[in-house]
Write a protein that binds this DNA or RNA. Structure first.
Lengths: 133, 133
DNA sequence: ATTTGTTGCTCTCAAAAAGAGACTAGGGCT
DNA sequence: AGCCCTAGTCTCTTTTTGAGAGCAACAAAT
């Protein structure tokens, strides 16, 4: 079962349902990285302008150094951002978005805009749900 | 420091950087939910057509029952999907997307398309990164 | 001269989240 | 009677995340 069944996908696309297990599925491979708790936030910041490590830390007050380092490494590994070390004393490190990162941020920013526009509707839905449950 | 500084945001928008801590920030409030490991995947499935619990389980082979239940509840709570119980024996439950969910899926599907289109570039970036590190 | 602060991390330990799998209930099928 | 189906919940283990200390090398303040 579940073998090579092609089902209609979002607007005019198809998707092989047998590919929905991780490893085969490109969408899952990509999304799993950028769907980290801090990834979109950092991409949003670095879409504005390059930032240094400490600046990002101050910009996102409730991220731990550990997660900031780790998330930046992952974004760098996937090619969304570049890391440049300046031999100052103490050495400073600058993170900046790559072309690939910017091309991702085009559709991604649409989702962020949607989130801003529909935040009210979502909060209302939560209130309804919590009242009925 | 960091008080009420308005910095340019993605394409023609502004964002109050003092609002980047969780709770204040609408974007983080919304994104943190849909950026769960399984959320986008389930939204993608339910954007096609309604599905029953067991169908989703078979469609996404490596999700645990626990996480399937939990993720569906969260999506339902935020108003993206509806849950309907049919009094058959054994009882069956159908999940279907709401209008709010569909309106979210419009921009979201653009990101998914991007992921599919750029999977190759990302895999290549990973290889480069792993080779240099 | 000693203390303090700055940089961008890494390391350890505790807490939270996720995954694996057993168990439930009420009926249908053999 | 025994087994399977449904959509879960409950418990236990493993993974992920968070909080915070430590580090190395130098500058500025005291």
């Amino acid at each position: 079962m579940n073998a090579n069944v092609r089902v209609p996908q979002f607007a005019g696309q198809e998707c092989d349902t047998s590919n929905w297990d991780a490893g085969n599925c490109p969408v899952r491979d990509v999304i799993n990285q950028i769907s980290g708790k801090w990834s979109t936030l950092l991409l949003q910041a670095l879409a504005q302008r390059p930032y240094r490590f400490g600046e990002l830390r101050r910009l996102v007050p409730d991220i731990s150094q550990r997660m900031l380092t780790q998330t930046l490494r992952e974004l760098q590994r996937d090619g969304y951002i570049d890391r440049e070390v300046f031999p100052t004393k103490p050495p400073s490190v600058e993170y900046r978005m790559t072309d690939l990162g910017r091309s991702l941020f085009l559709p991604l920013s649409q989702v962020l805009s949607w989130a801003e526009d529909n935040h009210g509707a979502i909060k209302a839905a939560r209130v309804r749900f919590d009242a009925s449950a």
